Amino acid sequence: MVSEPGTKGVYCSANINLVGGVLRNTTKRWIPEFFTEHLATPLQMRDYHLDLMPDGEQYLGGGIYMRPRDALKLGQLYLSGGTWNGRRVVSKRWVEQSIAKHATMNEQQTYGYTWWRHELKVGERVFSEYEACGNGGQLVMVVPELDLVVMFTAGNYNHVALWRKFREELLPRFIMAAVRSGK
């Protein structure tokens, strides 16, 4: 073991994939069918692709391909507390629980249930931000205090040093600063 249990979180894609097995066994549904019915259809997503494992089940550790506008809908869904176009899609309680801190990865980063959490400084103010991100730099970033959802797309796989600049530099320096100043 690297550290005492409960003291330091370590991200592992296999964990969320195991949750997929729990979802499948609990709902008795094929996960892509469940995704389509409970998320894609209510959010009016289209032209998406879900990676499947050799057994035909969806791989939940990554590999969901969707249009940027549809990925933005996920952030907007969470920003609105789980509603889309006035319709409840995800329970407010689940939204609150999933974006809450459940693990500390390092001093700058905590983790909820599939949402990374950060504090971003703009001028003298610090804003809470949470995001869903893909290995290549596909980030859906939510800044509740500014009523802001931002999407970055990239294909810089396994180059976190490149795409973390989206969050650490571009988002606070240009986008959040412009939103704060009203420009």
Rank of each mutant, 00 (worst) to 15 (best):
residue 4 E to C: 13
residue 5 P to G: 07
residue 7 T to S: 12
residue 13 S to P: 14
residue 19 V to S: 10
residue 23 L to P: 11
residue 28 K to D: 14
residue 30 W to D: 15
residue 33 E to S: 14
residue 34 F to Q: 08
residue 36 T to A: 15
residue 37 E to H: 12
residue 38 H to S: 10
residue 40 A to T: 06
residue 45 M to I: 02
residue 47 D to G: 09
residue 47 D to V: 04
residue 47 D to K: 03
residue 53 M to K: 14
residue 54 P to H: 08
residue 56 G to V: 07
residue 56 G to T: 05
residue 56 G to P: 06
residue 57 E to Q: 12
residue 58 Q to S: 14
residue 59 Y to S: 09
residue 59 Y to L: 11
residue 61 G to D: 11
residue 64 I to L: 15
residue 66 M to V: 11
residue 67 R to G: 06
residue 67 R to C: 08
residue 67 R to W: 10
residue 68 P to F: 07
residue 71 A to T: 01
residue 71 A to I: 03
residue 73 K to T: 03
residue 74 L to S: 02
residue 74 L to H: 02
residue 75 G to A: 02
residue 76 Q to M: 08
residue 76 Q to Y: 05
residue 79 L to G: 06
residue 80 S to L: 08
residue 85 N to S: 08
residue 89 V to Y: 05
residue 89 V to W: 05
residue 90 V to F: 05
residue 92 K to V: 10
residue 94 W to L: 13
residue 102 H to R: 14
residue 102 H to M: 11
residue 104 T to F: 12
residue 106 N to G: 08
residue 108 Q to M: 12
residue 108 Q to G: 11
residue 108 Q to W: 07
residue 108 Q to C: 06
residue 109 Q to I: 06
residue 109 Q to H: 14
residue 112 G to Q: 07
residue 113 Y to D: 07
residue 116 W to R: 05
residue 120 L to A: 01
residue 120 L to Y: 00
residue 121 K to C: 00
residue 121 K to H: 01
residue 128 S to Y: 02
residue 129 E to N: 06
residue 133 C to I: 07
residue 135 N to D: 12
residue 137 G to D: 01
residue 137 G to M: 01
residue 139 L to C: 09
residue 140 V to G: 03
residue 152 F to Y: 06
residue 153 T to Q: 05
residue 154 A to S: 09
residue 156 N to F: 14
residue 157 Y to V: 13
residue 162 L to T: 14
residue 163 W to K: 02
residue 164 R to Q: 00
residue 165 K to A: 04
residue 166 F to I: 00
residue 167 R to L: 01
residue 167 R to M: 00
residue 169 E to P: 01
residue 170 L to M: 09
residue 176 M to V: 01
residue 179 V to I: 06
residue 180 R to P: 02
residue 182 G to H: 03
